[in-house]
Write a protein that binds this DNA or RNA. Structure first.
Lengths: 196, 196
DNA sequence: GTCTATATAATGATAGAC
DNA sequence: GTCTATCATTATATAGAC
């Protein structure tokens, strides 16, 4: 019983192939035949035994990225540590989600605009909710006296933008481990918030 | 005499329309008919009296962005001020190029990958050359003792990535002027480089 | 320079044999 | 589930009238 909500092994392979192609070439530049090629299928038609359409792939990948970001953030928010410690851990976790989900986060950052209107609106709500959680961490860090920023909204946008940039140049297997890189980038962004 | 290197007024209007559409919808999602609509023409065919093809528009816009970035940076490099002063001015100028060329810089950051192989390679060389100029400014700032970073390469990538993020959320006519915003973002990024 | 009509290619998706 | 063949649509680009 295909495309009824169940997720077969084959279906996940297709989604993984789509992720990589969407990241490399972009959603619109990736044809169903491209995805079929990656699956060693001989024509795009075979894919429709597993999915309802191309946009469903985009949607599922976007949702996977949303899940990954929230799954990384929520346990940190629940910890019993100071707000600024939470903020630093959240920033590191955010970068690690990107480095470990390069395909899905490419959709999360760039390709989501090709979703249909309804899904795009729902997706944007998730992104905004995630952003507010970060802004709250910054707000609480300021209240606790650990952080001193003039404009909390600007600080939030700046921090997330700075962290997100890593997806443009990170390549697995580089001289720095993902963990070390995440810490380095998070500290660069965090230091920026400590005004001299 | 159309598309022979000369730039008529009409041709510039087309390029401006294409810039805006490429930014809003992306290069592939923008059809020649979309551009013609924006020009109040009744069919995509009329455009070909002014341009050779769609990719030429992308190329010219990419070159315009390259020119804008170098034109902003070079006079700062030629100034008789300290390296760290140059760096700060260069960062502010970089942000101002983005905020004042949102369409062209959208191509510079996102849509350039749809260029053909030859042009894409040439474009990447320009980008790398620009990045090296920034890295040199950071290197000289470290040498002069004004800056203290552990990893100059990482610092360069981080700073440019942080500045570039502004293009995702900047909207003209907001509560902060572009100049004030550029200074605020540049200082956030610059503070990050001053390790505690 | 713009219009209309059209050539050509590629795309997402479907149908039916196996 | 995968294959082949194919449909309908849309895209870039061209040709020729005005």
């Amino acid at each position: 019983m295909p495309h009824n909500g169940h997720r077969t092994g084959r279906r996940n392979q297709i989604q993984a192939a789509a992720e990589q192609l969407f990241r490399e070439k972009g959603y619109l530049a990736t044809s169903m035949r491209d995805i079929a090629d990656e699956m060693h299928m001989k024509g795009g038609g075979s894919l429709y035994a597993h999915i309802k359409g191309k946009e469903d792939l985009l949607w599922d990948i976007a949702q996977e990225a949303v899940r990954a970001f929230f799954s990384a953030l929520e346990p940190i928010l629940a910890k019993d540590i100071s707000p600024d410690q939470k903020l630093r851990e959240a920033m590191i976790a955010h970068v690690l989600v990107i480095t470990s989900h390069l395909g899905a986060t490419a959709v999360y950052f760039d390709e989501w605009r090709h979703l249909g209107d309804v899904r795009r609106a729902e997706f944007m709500q998730h992104r905004e909710r995630y952003e507010r959680l970060f802004q709250r961490l910054i707000h609480e860090s300021v209240e606790s006296g650990a952080l001193n920023v003039r404009d909390e909204r600007l600080a939030t946008i700046y921090v997330l933008g700075s962290l997100n940039a890593i997806r443009r140049w990170y390549k697995p297997g580089g001289r720095l481990s993902a963990q070390k890189l995440a810490e380095a980038v998070a500290d660069l962004a965090l230091n920026g918030l400590h005004q001299p």
